[in-house]
């Protein structure tokens, strides 16, 4: 894995046309990380839309609680909370590696008709689950607009972020996450499914690689009011 990281790093260095911006990229990343890390916790009203082929989950409304670095809980007034697993968490803070990293400047690029700064971040910590994160940054507002993370075990993860009310905290109003998913299958003999005549679709689904989308709309952030760690247990 180390060689892979070095290889990626070297490739990035040689390909990168704006090598001169490298130091700025480091600064940019650190500034960005500082901005993100200033949020120790928050509560927000959210609408969670899970769009996964094998999941039929209605729009989930509730309060999303977050505590840095990686605690998260969706509180739905007694309802069930479904969130993607820890390693590919929904927050930027988790996607953006902590600790020592190597930042590679990829210059500016157009993303959705917007000129953004693209950097690549490779964690130095071998234990990190992240192989590489590519971050598209709105330099002016110091905001992450798009991120693509490659993990060791969870496949790749793509995030689209939209901001409005909480630009200062780098907290998005809307996040759209695209993730790789494993197959889901339980033995028919166990579940004794009712055949509703939609069996043929199943085979088509199987051959495609599973992709899932999760869309979260945030409202009314309450930031840094302190949430106990115990709250996230259970």
């Amino acid at each position: 894995m180390k060689t892979l990281k070095i290889f990626l790093l070297l490739t990035a260095i040689f390909i990168c046309p704006n090598f001169a911006l490298a130091k700025n990229a480091d600064e940019l990343f650190n500034e960005l990380r500082q901005k993100i890390l200033q949020v120790k916790d928050y509560v927000a009203e959210v609408n969670l839309k899970i769009d996964v082929a094998y999941m039929k989950v209605p729009l989930l409304k509730g309060k999303l609680y977050f505590k840095a670095p990686d605690l998260m809980k969706l509180e739905r007034n007694g309802g069930i909370s479904i969130l993607p697993k820890k390693n590919i968490n929904l927050t930027l803070s988790n996607l953006i590696p902590t600790g020592k990293v190597t930042v590679i400047d990829m210059g500016t690029t157009l993303y959705k008709a917007k000129s953004l700064r693209l950097i690549k971040v490779v964690p130095d910590d071998e234990k990190s689950s992240i192989v590489l994160t590519k971050i598209w940054i709105d330099e002016q507002n110091l905001l992450v607009i798009h991120a693509e993370t490659t993990t060791y075990e969870e496949g790749s993860l793509i995030m689209d972020l939209e901001y409005n009310h909480f630009v200062n905290y780098s907290l998005p109003d809307k996040v759209k996450i695209f993730m790789d998913l494993k197959d889901y299958k339980l033995p028919q003999g166990l579940t004794m499914d009712y055949n509703d005549g939609n069996k043929k679709q199943e085979n088509i689904k199987k051959t495609l690689k599973q992709k899932g989308t999760i869309e979260i709309n945030y409202k009314n952030y309450v930031i840094n009011k302190g949430i106990s760690t115990n709250f996230f247990k259970g």
């Binding site: 094998y54 999941m55 039929k56 989950v57 209605p58 989930l60 739905r76 007694g78 309802g79 069930i80 479904i82 889901y184 299958k185 339980l186 033995p187 028919q188 166990l190 579940t191 499914d193 199943e202 689904k205």
Partner: peptide, 21 residues
């Protein structure tokens, strides 16, 4: 066991139903 959202696991689908539904 109280009320709550109901999960229903079919062989190829995971379904979540809201408790009021």
């Amino acid at each position: 066991f109280g009320k709550g959202d109901m999960i229903n696991m079919k062989s190829d689908t995971f379904i979540l139903l809201l408790q009021d539904d």
